[in-house]
Amino acid sequence: MKRRSAEAWVSACFLGAAAAAVGFVVAYVVDAGPQVLGGLLGTACAALAVGLVLWAAQLLPSGTYVEERRPMQPPEATQTAFVETLHRGSSGTPRLLRRTLLLAGLALGAAVVVPLRSLLLPTSAPPARALRQTPWRRGVRLMTREGDLVRADDVPQGTDLTVFPEGMPRADDATAIVVRVDPRELQQPAEGTVAGILAFSKLCTHAGCPVGLYEQTTRQLFCPCHQSVFDVLSGAEAVAGPAARALPRLPLAVDGDGYLVADGDFDGQVGPTFWRPE
């Protein structure tokens, strides 16, 4: 490329960048939407980039240079002098002084670690208890997210319902999924079920994702995160994928007003496994 024509190209790029930048301002003023805004500002930068690169390649002095590299190691004497400087005044330090300083350092280090305990919010229960318990108790009514209490008739076969303990629609560890099957198909004792209605923890025992997919003909629950499958009829045993435990079951009963209630807490640890005695 001749020098003149290179200059023309570079200035054309810079002009283009300026034009796109002005266009961006106009687009911003008239609120032209993200596509136009991003497109124009990006174009301005791209034009500038092309101009700069052309400039560097065609117009600026180039050439190969050789820079000498000195060895990293300085002469022995320089090194010795530095080490001596470091040791200045250290020869006479009593051993007791050094040891107590070390002790002080360790103690101080340990002391500043302790306040990390405050990271656990005062409102939280200690981990072992919080992880083992959910708000479900005997007699707590089932409630949908919209706040409706649930009767047995509200759970026809083929549907699935996400429920929470009454009044606690944001209690994540209590989330349960309620389905109804033909009681004769159940491959486990019917206690804790009401007319074929079963409730399981909705949190996958693998990584804790809500098991949101219910296949009504195969009666399987499918986790969208890591593709674990749980078989409802056998008590939500994990049948495929990376989950190793069944979904804990929430025992159900019916209260005096005909509403479905829990008959206790889940029958196992809810959510992802943590290190605990088996």
């Binding site: 993200p34 805004l37 500002l41 990006g42 930068c45 791209a46």
Partner: peptide, 14 residues
């Protein structure tokens, strides 16, 4: 630098 920024903005807008 401007090429990288341009790519971010173009992707970000489009």
């Amino acid at each position: 630098l401007f090429a990288v920024v341009a790519l971010c903005l173009l992707l970000g807008g489009l």
